[in-house]
Design a protein around this nucleic acid. Sequence first.
RNA 1: GGGGCCAUCGCCAAGUUGGUAAGGCCGUAGAUUGCAAAUCUGCUAUUCUCCAGUUCGAGUCUGGAUGGCCCCUCCA
Length: 463
Amino acid sequence: MYIYDSSKKTKLKFESIIPDKVTMYVCGPTVYDDAHLGHARSSLSFDMLFRTLKAIGYEVKYIRNFTDVDDKIIAKMKDIGKSLLEITEFYTQRYLNEMDALGVQRPTVSPKATESIEAMENMISSLLKKGFAYQISNGDVYFNTSKDTKYGSLSHMVNDDTISRIEAISEKKNPKDFALWKATNEFVSFDSILGKGRPGWHIECSAMIEKYTDGTAEYSIDIHGGGADLLFPHHENEAAQSRCATGHELAKYWMHNGFVQVDGEKMSKSLGNSFFLKDALNSYDGEVLRFYLTSVHYRNDFNFNEIDLLNSKKRLDRIYRLKKRVFDQTSSKPTERFVQKMLEAMTDDLNISIALSVIDSMAATANEKLDITPNDKNLKKETRANIEFISHLLGFGEKEPFEYFQIGIDEDMKAKIEELLGQRSEAKKAKDFKLADSFRDKLTSMDILIMDTANGTLWEKLT
RNA sequence: GGGGCCAUCGCCAAGUUGGUAAGGCCGUAGAUUGCAAAUCUGCUAUUCUCCAGUUCGAGUCUGGAUGGCCCCUCCA
């Protein structure tokens, strides 16, 4: 396995801290609003990593948190007059449902920040004790970035703060110092050894990583991931507080996925042009979205638009058409060379482009052979096994093929289609091709594509 | 103002250690078909935004220009 480490800015051979075991932590969502395409991409990127690591034999512990206490959630509470729990439970469930629709496998552990306050207190206390943190007059606790000699080494942000867009809080010792604990009694607060208050954002990940993993003398976990925007300051801060509190580095490898733009424009909360996943799922099948969103390498920027989505769907369709051809057989063993090439691609920093081209070439070969010997059982079994391998590794092609091409068709519509097909076939029998074609035209206008095969006429819903 | 990333065929998109441009869509010719669709086969970038340099050799390295994006503010 090779992984691009965004801290070292180079592709590295992956060597897990403990042989055959991997611990990966990915920053999950703050549950105060619906998930957008960016959340989907991040989740999908690390789902691919999770699946690939498992496929090559690692025992993987995958942790993805839910930030369920935060200023934005509190703002929402004030806004809509609901409790913290009502809001966070609602959006957590929504998030999980939508990720399920995308075929994202559930992480091994999904901790919530509010369930780990004690772990955060302990880490903050330890930082105070060791002199890496300080308390200001209102009771807030800040991390002192100037005490960490390695601060900035992760993101390579120069530790020179002469110009910054952030308005300095007067009592902060350095502009980049960040809040570990906010002393407050307002709305949401926890009793702690630091007094009443709530944690800052960065501390939760560090504390939960310590709580849910064992770590070694050198590192807490193997891989830490998240969106590219989290590299600074979020991950830099996590790395700093962790190393100062525990005496070892937080993660051996850092991975960041690229941004999603919509029709060439940045999607952001402040611009108000977030493309919600729920809206996308309303228009397109989850698997079609999954295929499209993962078809570009995870580190590149992704420009979401409908034309590209529809084009990428055609590639997915091919997998399902092949699956239709081998529908009547159970699977045997996948082709060795195919498996090997697929794994070779995915273990090269998740090179999905190569993996997809390997699939295309497998499909072309299988189709060619099936054209010659349509009833070759062994060939069908092997092809089916290949498709199941794709499903397993990449999460594509899991559906029953006939259902895949009939998504969005209700019973009435189906009956209507069957009726028209019947009429067409009778016209064909009578050699009245003009009449037969008129039925086909009718189906085409209903967005139904038909194809005559040796086993009768098949149909597919277009788009 | 500071830091970083990217720029490959009409469109999407691979291409660590420099060695002579994957794949998909579209288009096109053919096989197949009553005609289609599906499927298969052939063709489709002497060239990688531009300029200069290093080199026997550069899409890949260096410098510069242009364009796009990200971070430094909540953000995946």
